[in-house]
Design a protein around this nucleic acid. Structure first.
Length: 422
RNA sequence: GGAGAGAUGGCAGAGCGGUCGAAUGCGUCGGUCUUGAAAACCGAAGACUCGCAAGGGUCCGGGGGUUCGAAUCCCUCUCUCUCCGCCA
């Protein structure tokens, strides 16, 4: 969420940011500011009354000590009305604050000035393209390769769980494991600490990273225990430091986590869900950074570079998009997407998304850092996939397939899959 | 799942109804001393929030209650530890 003080000082800027993200309800800002000013009035009055009440309590205490019973007694009687007033005001003040903070959750983060203004994915900027775009020609889409080789079984997955929960078998499973290890090893090499987080989180964590209330429907829930199955490792990992203060010297903190991810993906259909293009359960290595506010944009660039390196080493062609304001999402100020080339489908597939959240998540989570002078401030968080497996698998199969049907093992995976062909 | 104990500042750990935002130790920071460091000594440090400021207010796991007044008493929830049961 945004800093209320920032909204007070820059209401127009925040409104403009909302409009650029395609969020038209800018009256939200006026409502928040109105609630805020009533709350402040209420708090002010309440504090005065409390101050008075504290003073008389103190006085009663010392009167008792001096043995002035009658005076203490009469002072005590006077507090009755005051107490009543305080109690009333307390509920009013609390209600106002709760309402204000609730609305605050619905105000999106403000895009960074370097982000192109636009409405949809058509307005995204192609930031860079790497590698040659193999033509389809004789190449087949990955789902054909998969079913012919028996590497992934969608039908049995549907039987056992439901659509979008596949089984990986033999070389298919082996490839998954190889990629996970490769991604993690590369991340550790790049200075990230390997983390294994919980796969379920509670409601506070889901709110901390912004899944609630914005993307609540994307998550699978465990109602009996109040848990959410994580849609990405971002959620547990970013919440790692919730309500904590980190020493400035510790920054930046970089973490890499492999987890399965669960997403309900309601409303998807057609070619988008064909094969490995979109699943309800998939594997991903996620990179998360906690950084000093001054460095968050350079950290975003290096995060993107870390993710790009993986694709380059795998020998996959890809492009990097700088997402426009309208296609960016609620919590980010700036975001790059990496899309890998799928020669069998002749289309781009998103395999990574690298974002800067500035203080948006950290403020919700109260993650702060303390500088040398002892001053405490909110830090910045970032994350990016490094990488999401299924579409990488799709691209590998389609890129490395031979005309005879076999699939070569990418050079960098050979330490993990000790053979020439899958 | 059953029984008991506990939750206090970065950590350890006092406090058991008023002067406690909280002793003490360690750690941290600043200074003295030193060529430099260590040791020793002296000193400084919680967070949030309202206010231009002066100055208020809130916070001793969360929520509620008793009281003029709660870290201290009561209820409740969560978590941690010990024992038993169960188990990868």
């Amino acid at each position: 969420m945004l800093d209320i003080a920032f909204i007070r000082d820059n209401p127009e800027l925040v409104k403009q940011g909302m409009l650029q993200k395609g969020e038209k309800k800018t009256e939200l800002i006026d409502q928040v500011l109105e609630l805020d000013s009533s709350w402040r009035k209420s708090t002010h009055l309440l504090d005065e009354l409390r101050s008075k009440s504290n003073a008389t309590s103190k006085m009663i205490g010392s009167l008792m000590k001096e043995g002035k019973k009658e005076e203490a007694e009469s002072a005590r009687k006077e507090t009755a009305a005051l107490k009543e007033q305080i109690k009333e005001l307390e509920t009013e003040e609390q209600t106002l604050l709760e309402k204000r903070n609730e609305l605050l959750l619905y105000i999106p983060n403000v895009p960074h000035p370097s982000v192109p203004v636009g409405k949809s994915d058509a307005d995204n900027l192609v930031h860079a393209t790497w590698g040659e775009l193999l033509p389809k020609s004789w190449r087949r889409p990955h789902w054909d390769i998969i079913s012919e080789m028996g590497w992934i079984d969608f039908d049995r997955g549907s039987k056992v769980t439901g659509a979008g929960f596949p089984f990986y078998i033999g070389a298919g499973a082996r490839l998954q494991r190889a990629l996970i290890n490769f991604f993690l090893d590369e991340a550790v090499q790049a200075g990230y600490t390997e983390i294994q987080p919980p796969y379920f989180v509670n409601e506070d964590s889901a709110r901390g990273t912004g899944q609630i209330p914005d993307k609540e429907d994307m998550m699978y829930t465990v109602p009996r225990d109040g848990f959410f199955a994580i849609p990405t490792a971002e959620v547990p990992v970013t919440n790692y430091f919730r309500k904590e203060i980190i020493q400035e010297a510790e920054l930046p903190v970089k973490m890499a986590a492999y987890t399965p991810c669960w997403r309900r993906e309601a409303g998807s259909y057609g070619k988008d869900v064909r094969g490995l293009n979109r699943l309800h359960q998939f594997d991903k290595v996620e990179l998360v950074k906690f950084v000093h506010p001054e460095t968050s944009y350079s950290e975003l660039e290096s995060l993107r570079q870390d993710a790009e390196n993986l694709l380059q080493k795998l020998g996959l062609s890809y492009r990097t998009l700088l997402m426009c304001t309208g296609d960016m999402g609620f919590t980010q100020t700036k975001k790059y997407d990496l899309e890998v080339w799928s020669p069998g489908q002749e289309r781009w597939l998103e395999v990574s998304s690298c974002s800067n959240f500035e203080s948006f998540q950290a403020r919700r989570m109260m993650v702060r850092y303390k500088d040398k002078n002892g001053a405490v401030s909110i830090l910045h968080t970032l994350n990016g996939s490094g990488l999401a497996l299924p579409r990488v698998v799709a691209a590998i199969l389609e890129t490395y397939q031979q005309e005879d049907g076999r699939v070569r093992v990418p050079e960098v995976l050979k330490p993990y899959i000790n053979r020439e062909y899958l």
